[in-house]
Every structure is written in C-alpha cells, then in structure tokens.
C-alpha cells in the first residue's frame, strides 16, 4: 500500500499568475508541444514536486491546468496537447512570448514512499507527461529506487512524445528498461505492436516489491488495471493521476470535486484504492 501525502504548496496570492517568458518550445508529436518558461528575471516560477500541476494562462484568452512535466534550476515545463481555445492559442506561441503561470497545485507523486521499490511506469499517449516528471525526479536519486520498467504506448511510433528521454536518456539509466509499444505498425517501426493492457500483461513483471505509476486515458487505466490484477498487483500499489476541469486550483471554485475530494487539492495523484472509495460520478 502506498502512502500518498494529500497536501500541496503554493506561493503568494494563489489566484494571480506571474508573468513568465517562454524560453523553449519543442514539438513532441503532431498535436503536443512542450513549453519551457521562466520568470522575467530569469528564475524558476515555482518549485514543483513531480506530478504537481501548474496553471498556464494567456492574458486575454484564458487559463488551464497542466501537469508540470519537468523543471530545472531556472525553468519549468509542461507538455500541452492542442484541444481547446487556450491550447490552440498556446501552440501559436513562439520563444520569447509571454504567458502567465501560477502554482504548484495538487499533491504530486509520493516520491518518498516509492523509495526502495521497483517501479513500473506506464504512460499512454500524453499521459506520459506526468509520468515523465516522476521518472526525472527518481533519476536524480537513482540509487534510492529499485528496477525501473518504463512503458510508453502511442498510436504510432511517430506519436511517441519525449523522444530524447524514451530513446536516449532513460534506456541508458542504470537498472532500467524502456518498453515502447504502438497501436499501429508503420514502416519505420519493427518493435511491439500492441495496446498497453495486452503489452503489460505479456511483460508479466512480478508484483513483489513493485509499484505501478500509470497515466493515460481512463479506458487504458481500467483495462490495464484488470491485467495487472491478473498478475497479482494490489490496487493500493497502483498510482494514477486524474485529469479534470479545474478553474481555481486551490479547492475553492468547486468544479473538480469527486465526492468530498477535490482533484486540484487532494489529487491529482491517487492510488486506485483511494479512487475506489470515491463516488463514481
């Protein structure tokens, strides 16, 4: 059973963003871009824990919450899929443009509670984004964790995000194996073609001293969980990060509740056992 600390931290007036500048934009896949930002005086906007959220805004257009997928000494970044008005506008931004940022929000992954365990990371599509933040964090303290298996599932090989991490950085990490699987075969891929639930089942990793961190579409989570149960994984050892509409980020505006819990405040990270206890909205 994993202990998750359901408290979060945030600076200043939590509802007013600080002006930041885009310092880097990378195209991950056809509709996902990673944006890196820092404050106007060249600092990191805030220090996020892996899995925590940041509210990105474009003054005049709107704001929306995204997982902070990575951070450095003086920057943070999020990977954003173009699905709505704000995200479409963000995809038009260039390096040097301004955005607003506030956060961090939410509890983040239980990086401490995972120490000593083997970890199976699973990211489906853009779900790889929150998982990435935890892998990067764990990589900084690699010796404190056991074996890593990192599963990335994408529609085709060209839809795999964070290519540098998946193809270069993580495969070369100690005691780590990266597994890529795609839904559809293309000429440039001769690896696994399978949906994540099937793939994870064939991997057949033993559940002993192993935790699972899994993010992706809800159908993927549900089906993969069934297969993991077959392999003997307990629901309390499976962690996921929820995604839902948020406005304030601090548990006030009411929008993201599931029963008495607020995803922005008590989540977004929950074990499946914790989710089982919430009403099925």
């Amino acid at each position: 059973m994993i202990e998750i600390n359901h408290s979060c931290t945030c600076n200043g007036n939590p509802l007013v963003p600080q002006v930041c500048r885009i310092t880097d934009i990378r195209s991950e896949t056809g509709d996902v871009k990673t944006f890196r930002a820092q404050t106007l005086d060249g600092k990191r906007p805030f220090l996020p824990m892996p899995g925590q959220l940041g509210m990105w805004s474009m003054p005049g257009i709107g704001e929306a919450m995204f997982s902070i997928t990575a951070f450095g000494e003086d920057w943070i970044e999020s990977s954003i899929k173009s699905v709505g008005e704000l995200t479409e506008a963000m995809h038009e931004l260039s390096v040097g443009d301004f955005v607003g940022l506030r956060g961090p929000y939410g509890n983040g992954f239980p990086a401490d509670a995972l120490k000593g365990s083997d970890i199976l990371f699973i990211g489906g599509g853009i779900g790889a984004a929150p998982v990435r933040s935890l892998i990067r964090w764990c990589a900084l303290h690699r010796e404190q964790y056991g074996r890593f298996d990192i599963v990335c599932g994408a529609r085709t090989i060209d839809d795999v995000p964070f290519r540098e991490d998946f193809f270069e950085n993580w495969p070369s990490m100690d005691n780590t194996e990266v597994h890529i699987t795609v839904d559809r075969k293309t000429d440039n891929w001769d690896g696994s073609v399978a949906f994540i639930p099937d793939y994870v089942e064939t991997l057949a990793l033993p559940p002993e001293n192993r935790k699972v961190v899994m993010c992706g579409p809800s159908i993927m989570i549900r089906l993969t969980t069934e297969r993991l149960a077959k392999l003997g994984f307990a629901r309390g050892d499976i962690i996921t990060s929820m995604e839902t509409r948020m406005k304030c980020g601090i548990g006030k505006c009411g929008r993201c509740n599931i029963g008495s819990k607020y995803v922005c405040l008590d989540g977004p990270v929950f074990t499946l056992t914790e989710l089982d206890e919430l009403p099925a909205e």
Binding site: P59, G60, I61, E63, T244, R245, C253
Partner: peptide, 29 residues
C-alpha cells in the same frame, strides 16, 4: 460559493474576473 474564472479584454488590456457559477449548469463540468 462555486465560481468561474474568465477574462474580458478590450484591445490589449483587460481584466480577469471570477463570477458566480452553478453546478447545475451544463457547461460547469
């Protein structure tokens, strides 16, 4: 006490405001 957060611009100036919202509305979630 639920609220929504929105913005209103004229040219390149504007304000972000919050306003009452209702969990009964179809666009709430």
């Amino acid at each position: 006490y639920c609220f929504d957060i929105n913005q209103s611009s004229v040219g390149d100036e504007g304000v972000a405001f919050r306003c009452w919202d209702s969990c009964m509305f179809s666009d709430y979630n």
